[in-house]
Amino acid sequence: MARLTIDDLKRIKEKHKEEFSLREGGYRAKVTVHMGTCGIAAGAREIMTALMAELREAGAEGVIVATSGCAGLCSKEPLATVEMHGQPPVKYGELTEAKIKTIVKEHVIGGAPVEKLALVTGSETAY
């Protein structure tokens, strides 16, 4: 990356807001797998692999797959968050490979949150 100026900071911020908030980036969904030490130890890598495989198999397009750090609720690891365009994010916990497959099929592709597996929806209070 080239050296940034203060204007670049703002530009990057705007660009990302657009691209990664699913608004103007042309994506329809974002799946974030939480990969802190806890998450990885609880099997987040396997969940990630299963997620990628399932998305590939289903030929799903317009889905961002992202990794992130600990989501804070360690006793429910591994965790993933599914954000669909136009809906509040939904967190899923205690994931298994079978569960993530169901979530891909029903929520990411089908558009309906998997109620029996979901932990919570919405965003946390910041500041």
């Binding site: 990057i12 911020k13 990302h16 990664f20 992202a66 750090g69 965790l79």
Partner: peptide, 18 residues
């Protein structure tokens, strides 16, 4: 927390970083 890819400086910047 859980919102950004820790390996991406751009995602940090996008959330008011720096």
């Amino acid at each position: 927390k859980g919102m950004i890819d820790p390996d991406s400086i751009e995602e940090y910047i996008a959330r008011d970083g720096y």
